[in-house]
Design a protein around this nucleic acid. Structure first.
Lengths: 144, 144
DNA sequence: CTTGTTGCAAACGGTTTGCATGGTG
DNA sequence: CACCATGCAAACCGTTTGCAACAAG
C-alpha cells in the first residue's frame, strides 16, 4: 500500500473517525491516481473494481473529511465539477492544464512559478492556505 | 462611459449581435466594478439601480456572449459559483485572493508570477488561452 | 417582416442533507 | 450499547434551456 494511503488512514483514525470499508476504498482509489479526479470518476472507479462500492453521498462525505484534514486538495477547474487529489507532502506541488473541450487534466510543475506564489502569499494581507494555478486551453487532440 | 463599456458594446455590435437595453445594463454594471462579480451579484445590482432589470436568464446569456468575445473573463474560485470580470487589455493582468469563509475577493498583480506562467504556457503541449491563479485563505476580518 | 432577444418556468447536474438502518469500538 | 457511518431519496443551488411573446434592423 502506498505511503499516502497509510498516512491518510492513520490521520483519519487519529482524528477520531471510525474505520469503514467505504472510506478505505476511497482512500485506496485516490492513492492509485496520478492526477485529480472528479467525484463522479471516483464513484465510477469504485463501482467498477470493488464491492462494496460506496454511495455517492458517502464518497462526498469521505472527500469532505479528507479535505478537512488536508489529506486531499479540492480544486475547481471550471466545467461545473470539483476535482480531488491526494496531497503528498514529499512530492513537489503541481498545477494543472485543463482542456476546456474534453476536460482532460494534465499536471505540470514549475519552480519559478511556485517561488513567485510563495512570495506573493507571504506579502498578502490574507493568511493564504492553498493555491491553484489553472491554465485553460485546448489539448493536442482537441486543438487539431 | 468607460472605455471598456464602449469597447464592449462596439465589439458586440460588430459581432452581429443586436442592441438591447438589458445587455447594455449588464455591460455598464460590469464596467463600474473593480473586481469579479458573481451572476447573483450582477442580477442584484441590476435590480437595485435600473429598470428594466434583466431576468436571470438574460444575465447569464449576456455573460456567455461577453465571455465568448473575450470581453469578460469567467473565473472559478470555488464556493460553487462562477465570477465574471471585464477584460481590460490596457491594464495588467491580475489574479485573486479568495477568503474561503466570507467569499471576499481581493485582486493582486505580480510580474514575476505572470512571467513564469507565460513561460510555462509556451512550453506546454496545450495551446493555452487563459489562466487563473487563485490563492485561498482567510481574509483579515475572518482570520481574527 | 425576419430574426435575434427576452422572460418565465421547468429542467439539469453536481453537491448536500434528513432520517432510518447498520456497523464500529 | 452508544455513536458514528451509510444509503436512499429528496432538497438545494447555480446554471441552462424550451417556448411563446417581443423588439431591433
Amino acid at each position: 500500500m502506498s505511503d499516502w494511503a497509510t498516512h491518510a488512514k492513520t490521520a483519519m483514525r487519529e482524528a477520531g473517525l471510525r474505520h469503514s470499508a467505504q472510506r478505505d476504498a476511497v482512500v485506496e482509489l485516490l492513492a492509485r491516481q496520478t492526477c485529480a479526479l472528479s467525484a463522479q470518476q471516483i464513484d465510477d472507479g469504485l463501482r467498477r473494481r470493488r464491492r462494496p462500492a460506496a454511495s455517492r453521498a458517502t464518497v462526498y462525505r469521505a472527500l469532505e473529511q479528507l479535505a478537512a484534514l488536508r489529506l486531499v486538495q479540492r480544486l475547481d477547474v471550471g466545467l461545473g465539477e470539483a476535482r480531488y487529489e491526494p496531497v503528498r507532502p514529499d512530492r513537489d506541488h503541481h498545477h494543472h492544464l485543463v482542456c476546456d473541450e474534453c476536460g482532460q487534466l494534465t499536471p505540470f510543475e514549475d519552480a519559478a512559478l511556485e517561488q513567485a506564489i510563495d512570495r506573493v502569499s507571504r506579502s498578502a494581507s490574507f493568511s493564504v492556505q492553498e493555491h491553484d494555478v489553472v491554465l485553460h486551453g485546448l489539448c493536442d487532440s482537441c486543438s487539431a
